[in-house]
């Protein structure tokens, strides 16, 4: 790497970047701080004492809404989406390595699924379920709706991964007498495992936070984002912020966990090489 002197451009852009990061995290930290508002405090600064009153409030059963149950639903849904996302994206990625009839159509269908507005898909699935006489529920219609959003990300990631993947490793394995399953299990899979974790992370977090696609498809019981959206209009206490803090910390934990796993995998691979 060259070590020229830093130019003025660098300092201007570094300052710009710092402002951007502050812009991203600033408001979130305001919520974090205000969730520790005292029992008599309101929705804005200043802090009227410091307490965990609103966190207690959140976990009590009350008029605010059923936070625990909607969290459980969102969590299970996220896990379901994650597993299916990884499996289906991996299979589709493998399929796209060869050109087959209809591959272009399927590819554009996948991209289209990313581009078509969420609310249209939500409405469409809602109407299809209604006309088929099926009851929409978070584990059926909302599950499918989420997949139309997470799968394109997963498939495109796998597509990019396989585009850069040299087939010579597999050929070496085959030349050494490995069956195609062994080649897949012991050569291909370990090499793409970090990307699969990434696909899983995307699947989980996108589903866990998805709102527009759940709107018409969740049926009787709300997922967490719907619950929060409902709260924005009728809750005027910092309990809203407490909920925001809890779910955001939860998201952060999941992201860090996934990153840690990816890092460990990369390290192990580097050692092997």
């Amino acid at each position: 790497m060259s070590h020229e002197k830093r130019t003025l451009e660098f300092y201007v852009l570094a300052a710009f970047f710092a402002v951007f990061v502050f812009f991203l995290y600033g408001p979130l930290s305001a919520v974090l701080i205000l969730s520790f508002q005292g029992p008599d405090g309101g929705l804005t600064f200043p802090l009227n004492g410091v307490s965990v009153h609103w966190f207690y409030n959140l976990f009590e059963q009350q008029a605010v809404g059923d936070f625990g149950a909607s969290f459980k639903r969102s969590f299970s849904l996220g896990l379901m989406v994650m597993v299916v996302n990884v499996l289906v994206s991996l299979l589709a990625g493998l399929a796209f390595r060869r050109k087959f009839k209809g591959s272009t159509v399927l590819f554009y269908l996948t991209v289209a699924s990313l581009v078509v507005p969420s609310i249209i898909i939500s409405l469409g699935i809602g109407v299809v379920f209604q006309q088929l006489g099926l009851k929409p529920a978070w584990y059926s219609s909302a599950f499918g709706a989420h997949l139309t959003w997470t799968l394109p990300f997963g498939v495109l990631i796998m597509f990019a991964v396989f585009n850069r993947f040299s087939p010579s490793y597999e050929e070496a394995a085959r030349d050494l007498g490995a069956t195609s399953w062994q080649t897949f299990r012991h050569v291909l899979l370990p090499m793409i495992a970090p990307s699969l974790i990434g696909v899983g992370l995307f699947g989980f977090t996108l589903s866990y936070d998805e709102f527009a696609r759940t709107l018409m498809t969740s049926g009787t019981y709300n997922t967490l984002p719907l619950e929060i959206y409902g709260m924005t209009t009728n809750v005027t206490t910092p309990v809203l912020y407490a909920l925001g803090t809890v779910t955001t910390l939860f998201s952060f934990t999941i992201i860090l966990l996934a990153l840690a796993i990816i890092l460990v995998m990369r390290r192990r691979q580097a050692k092997l090489v």
């Binding site: 979130l28 984002p225 929060i228 925001g244 779910t247 955001t248 998201s251 952060f252 992201i255």
Partner: peptide
Amino acid sequence: PFLTSNII
């Protein structure tokens, strides 16, 4: 932040 809730 992109991977956290839009509504929050």
